[in-house]
Write a protein that binds this DNA or RNA. Structure first.
Lengths: 111, 111
DNA sequence: TTTCATGCCTCGCGACGCGAGGTATAGTCG
DNA sequence: CGACTATACCTCGCGTCGCGAGGCATGAAA
């Protein structure tokens, strides 16, 4: 398996969580699986990241949650609020700008 | 000016520093200017990031330094060691993998 | 002489990723 | 019945890191 760099992950959970939950409501376990599939294993958020992140986003009014009973188990579905969608747009723009900046430097050869 | 997201910067200093210093030796102020130009203002490392990062990389044996007097001012030139170059390759691969993972999620629409 | 560019530095705060550990239910296999 | 796995949620605490704020010194220009 590919080695990971924890330090390159900062801010990424918030970004991808908002992105997923701006499209449809999902619950924790669901999100974890979706991230693995969509990113082809490169972005797997452990539960120690996932749940605190969801709570923090909800506390900031970027997500809204409601719990539902399915087969005797409690699922907590999350969905992005309008405020969360706006935040997503800003975050996405920031990500692209930063990402392109890095790419320019990685691709630069000036000798 | 565009708003920045501090949290998206994690790990980036190490990456871009190694990249620049794998090509040629540079000193602190020089690096700060080069980063601004190359990344078109999107990646400006403050001195509170730059110097501690350089010291940490040197302490880990990824950079080598030597000071030189120019016009009565002391410049400390840094350059990537072979070990630093190997680290750069690994970091670059990690960056690309993570970056592509994020892009896949940002670009995904499944409804 | 004040101001600006150069050139280096550290301290301390806050934020964040993340592993480790915890709880509980439902279904399966022997 | 007991063991194990999958589902589904959670928190605590450690370590790392970006970064603003502040500091010191020199040379040149105003």
């Amino acid at each position: 398996m590919p080695e990971r760099d924890p330090t390159l992950m900062s801010g990424v959970p918030e970004l991808v969580l908002l992105r997923l939950l701006a499209q449809r409501q999902m619950y924790g376990y669901d999100i974890a699986r979706a991230l693995k599939l969509l990113s082809r294993e490169t972005l797997s958020l452990g539960e120690g990241v996932l749940y605190p992140a969801l709570h923090a986003l909800e506390a900031r009014g970027l997500l809204r949650s409601r719990s539902r009973q399915v087969d005797g188990r409690t699922r907590i579905y999350y969905q992005a609020t309008p405020k969360g969608c706006r935040r997503l747009e800003r975050l996405t723009a920031n990500w692209r700008r930063m990402s392109e900046g890095v790419e320019r430097i990685l691709g630069a050869h000036h000798d």
